[in-house]
């Protein structure tokens, strides 16, 4: 039972919490706001919150100057593709670890996670050469594979924690009922784990969408996603703040909106099942 709190206290708490939250959110808000200003009001001092000249020109110009739809589509294909491929490989592995645990299961999980600790920069040259040699360089297939492998440990780990919450008796019941292993996974485990699979999927789409090392170093034009799009938009002169903001908004908006809508599932996923 939550304790009853006096209204005055609640007002005070609410004000404090909202101030902090708005402060954290402010850079995102300010970027979106700036993207609708003219370049002149974007750099005005003191900063203009509402008195600026509003315009959509920045979006029009960014849209005209680069092939946004292609970057966007590449981001979608790469993040969704690598996540789906990862799930297909990870679901059976997570089943094994959750329901037929051995002495080495924990070690295996830790080993998987430790592969993520290898600094990407350390293996940049070999990866570059491998991608060149195999014709995967600057292809969406190549990035789907690379990001799938990069996020596979996270996918396996998250699924493992979700699967462990499913009582093994239910899978045994399916086995008694005559289900083969494949049917057990398809008809019983997967439908029961849908919420967990969904949050795993969401988190990994976001991680893949925001990945900015391999997506930049292993692409040039054809497969370049939004991370490369934004990297090409640096504005050191400060004269193009509004356009930079518009490009930034265009790069983050899709995932920001997806994230807002799935915030509840995401938070559960983020905790790797380690926090109930």
């Amino acid at each position: 039972m939550a304790r009853a709190v006096s209204t005055r206290r609640k007002v005070f708490y609410t004000a404090a919490a909202w101030s902090v939250a708005l402060l954290i959110f402010f850079p995102v808000f300010w970027t979106i706001l700036t993207s609708f200003k003219t370049e002149a009001s974007a750099v005005a001092s003191p900063p203009q919150l509402f008195s600026a000249d509003w315009t959509l020109d920045n979006y029009a110009e960014v849209w005209g100057r680069s092939d946004y739809p292609r970057f966007f589509w590449n981001s979608v294909v790469i993040s969704v593709g690598s996540t789906l491929l990862g799930l297909i490989i990870a679901i059976p592995a997570a089943w094994s670890m959750a329901f037929v645990p051995g002495n080495r299961t924990k070690d295996l999980l830790m080993w998987m996670l430790s592969t993520k600790m290898m600094p990407a920069a350390a293996v940049l040259i070999p990866m570059y050469l491998i991608f060149q040699r195999t014709g995967l360089f600057d292809t969406r297939t190549g990035l789907v594979l690379a990001l799938m492998l990069m996020n596979l440990p996270v996918i396996v780990w998250m699924l493992y924690t979700y699967f462990k919450e499913i009582p093994s008796e239910i899978l045994e019941a399916a086995r008694m009922d005559g289900a083969s292993l494949g049917k057990e996974i398809i008809y019983v485990l997967t439908p029961m784990a849908i919420p967990g699979i969904a949050s795993t999927m969401l988190l990994n789409i976001i991680l893949a969408w925001n990945e900015a090392f391999w997506t930049i170093t292993l692409t040039t034009v054809n497969a370049a996603p939004l991370s490369a799009f934004i990297a090409s938009f640096s504005a050191p002169q400060g004269l193009f703040y509004a356009k930079l903001s518009a490009a930034s908004t265009m790069a983050i908006a899709p995932i920001l909106i997806l994230g807002w809508f799935s915030q509840k599932q995401l938070v559960r996923g983020l905790t790797f099942g380690a926090v109930k």
Binding site: E169, A173, D177, M192
Partner: peptide, 12 residues
């Protein structure tokens, strides 16, 4: 056929 302690019904 088996009846389990937790019933092990398929919740979905």
């Amino acid at each position: 056929a088996m009846v389990f302690q937790s019933y092990a019904l398929y919740p979905h």
